[in-house]
Amino acid sequence: MKKKFAALLALALVASVALTACGGGSAPAASTPAAGPTGTNGGTMPGTSQAVGDASINTNSDYTFRTSDSNRVVTENGTFTKDNVPGPVLVTSVGQSADVSMLDALMKKVGAADYTFNSTAAADEMANYGTIIIACGASSKGLGAAGISQEDELARAQAIVDAVKDSDATVIVAHLGGASRRGALSDQFNNMMLPCADYIMVVEDGNDDGLFTDAATDNGVPITLIYSIADAVTPLTELFGA
């Protein structure tokens, strides 16, 4: 009796496992592979109560947000005008995040003429340009798409720093990815590029530790804080608009 019962239970277990195993699977929740980059250009949610400017999501209690839904573009530490951006203009990236593509789209949006877009421009090309806009932000997928390793990109960034630091070129450092684009690797690139910036543009929620504003203060360069990436249209129009 016990043997029959045990056999029946075992059979039931086999049948259940066979059918439920075939009926499902370890289907992951996301539709792309789990290994992901440090994030994308996280623009803030417009018109939301928890957007940038709300202290409850400020990770650094010492930092006071300047921008808000009603005050979307704030420039500090002086002014930066069209006169400061001689041509020709290069738009490039360090870190190969998608932010450089967004910057390219922004430049097209404002009708910027005669600029070169090359996300992997080499250091020796810097001498050809009067203004170099560098979109800072790391993305493992971007590096993969560009076919560059992290080490090579870091070396390239350092070579760019060496090329521009003693040149007359105007260097604009743009961090448009927001908080989601900050991370260990991104900050390596940020820390390399900020000392040679003549002007900084940053989506403010990526500055909640004051990294960019402190760099602007320390180096005596103007900085424009924007509420969301779309607000970059305003300073870019002033600088490069048709």
Binding site: G42, G43, P46, A105, K109, S140, K141
Partner: peptide, 24 residues
């Protein structure tokens, strides 16, 4: 994609852009 996302962002839609992974 970047043009489309930018137009959405300008219209107050919080879209983002990401690259397809080489091993996706």
């Amino acid at each position: 994609g970047s043009t489309a996302v930018m137009n959405c962002v300008i219209n107050n839609l919080p879209m983002r852009l990401e690259f397809s992974g080489q091993t996706s």
